[in-house]
Amino acid sequence: MTFKTRRTLWKCLWTFILLIFFVISVYPVVWMFFGSLKDTNEFYTNIWGFSTNPSWSNYAKAWNNAALGEKLINNIIVTVGSLLVLIPVNSFASYAIARLKFKGKRWIYMYLLLGIMIPTGVLGIPTFTVALNMGLNNSHLGLILVYAAQSIAMGVFIMRSFFVTLPKALEEAAIVDGCTRFGSFVKIILPLAKAGVVTQVIFNGLTIWNEYFMANIMITSQHLQTLPLAIANFTGQHTTDYPVLFAALSIATLPVIVIYVICQKSFIEGVAAGAVKG
């Protein structure tokens, strides 16, 4: 077997493996979308196939019944707001921990890492109590701060691992250029850790976008509800209206997929640009 045929064989094998993973990953999303176009009867009788009589009425129903437009805006406010808080907060701390020498650094890092090990879901009610005492219940700001806080442990950990891989001489070079330390961090170091930032955006953004538990505890006003709260409307005590639920979920998932596709591009470019010879 020549080198070339072996290579081609390998390539076929890879493509085949990828194809399998691709199908089992993509089909569910397509299935959800198909489901949203079926009526209830077809949903239960034609389970795996494409809708024979696709109808968009479920979307209209979902949109109107749960006032999804308003909730979508709320969800964007909360998600973007949380990212705007958590990205700088995590980046600052992880930069200091990764690249600066100071007393107590080790303890600060260990302290923040504790967050990875605390099952936050169980502490929903105490978290609510804290927010309540600060007057932050039933507000988007409260949710934003809680989400940002919950991201800190993992975020600092991830960002730190990106910062430590950068060459040690970077700051010195920047200071020679006449930047202050904060300036060199913002202008030189942070752009190089763009991949870390994007990692946080896609992970935390997604978690926050779909977060239900804390939102349900903290939000009491109808007009402040986020998308997952509205989507829970379709889950009844005994029965769930799946086609409408799936329509609502398709609406909720679409922006996430679009953002990932956009991020993915800049992510990979960002990483390539940040690949400094060490």
Binding site: I125, F128, L132, N216, I217, I219, T220, Q225, A232
Partner: peptide, 21 residues
């Protein structure tokens, strides 16, 4: 104040009890 699923009502009631709303 109708929100969430049947299973969550108890938690929401707890928060009202705590907040005194």
């Amino acid at each position: 104040q109708r929100q969430g699923t049947w299973d969550d009502t108890l938690q929401r009631l707890q928060t009202r009890r705590i907040s005194g709303e």
